[in-house]
Design a protein around this nucleic acid. Sequence first.
DNA 1: CTCCCTCCTGGAGTGCGCTCCAGGTCAAGG
DNA 2: CCTTGACCTGGAGCGCACTCCAGGAGGGAG
Lengths: 131, 131
Amino acid sequence: MPSTPTGATIAEAADRLGLSVDTLRYYERDGLLLRAVPRSNSGHRRYQPQDLRWIELITRLRSTGMPIRDVHRYAALVRAGDGNEEERLALLRAHRETVLHQLAEVTAHLGAIDHKIGIYTDRLERISHSA
Amino acid sequence: MPSTPTGATIAEAADRLGLSVDTLRYYERDGLLLRAVPRSNSGHRRYQPQDLRWIELITRLRSTGMPIRDVHRYAALVRAGDGNEEERLALLRAHRETVLHQLAEVTAHLGAIDHKIGIYTDRLERISHSA
DNA sequence: CTCCCTCCTGGAGTGCGCTCCAGGTCAAGG
DNA sequence: CCTTGACCTGGAGCGCACTCCAGGAGGGAG
């Protein structure tokens, strides 16, 4: 009888990672993970620490705006094993640049919005002072 | 004979605002603008400075992540005229908070990615030194 | 007059990233 | 033995924000 691997259930994994169970299954189906998550005897997923660490990383990539398509590419590189570190690095660095640009843009737009907030605030203060 | 208003054509407006002509028409159809853009005798849109300024503002809101639904609400307040400045301000401030949270989150995730980049960089340097 | 370009409209289509569902299995608790 | 609950699969559906298209009109250049 094959022994059931220990590890987090999908609900536990979802909880720890801040994702939904549907998203976890979707990521696996879509090939974003490095391997198929091991199963218990009854066919339930049992997430190992290495699985959780990988998903944590791709969650970071995703929440900094990396499209799933690119996560896919990165996963393929890591799956391919040692020897392509330059490529992985290039991908991460390109993403870093993209994120920095985005941050700068959002910050600039936020500045203009803040300015608008200042205008409204002043106007409201003037009204309340004159009342 | 009614005189055609001067102003930017849709192509010029799109160009200045960094949007597509389709997006401009979509925004208008969807009620994101303060008013219907004036038309030339032949029915072509002629964007006035006030129209461009408004679209510039909502573009800033959009590119800081405000959903169209909320831009809609903001437009409704402004269209309603004076007297609801507190509400507008509340909306903008709430958005400001949301954006600040996002920025913090993205920055934090980027830090972790940078760490990863550092690890790869070190590894590659060690390889090239030992070569 | 004809060609061509830009614009018009209503409506359909697209890409992304999930999210939900029906129908089913399995193991534990009462 | 029966119910309950967590999980499984394949596949459909959804919300968002555009984006594209067919078919047509106005106006200037040659």
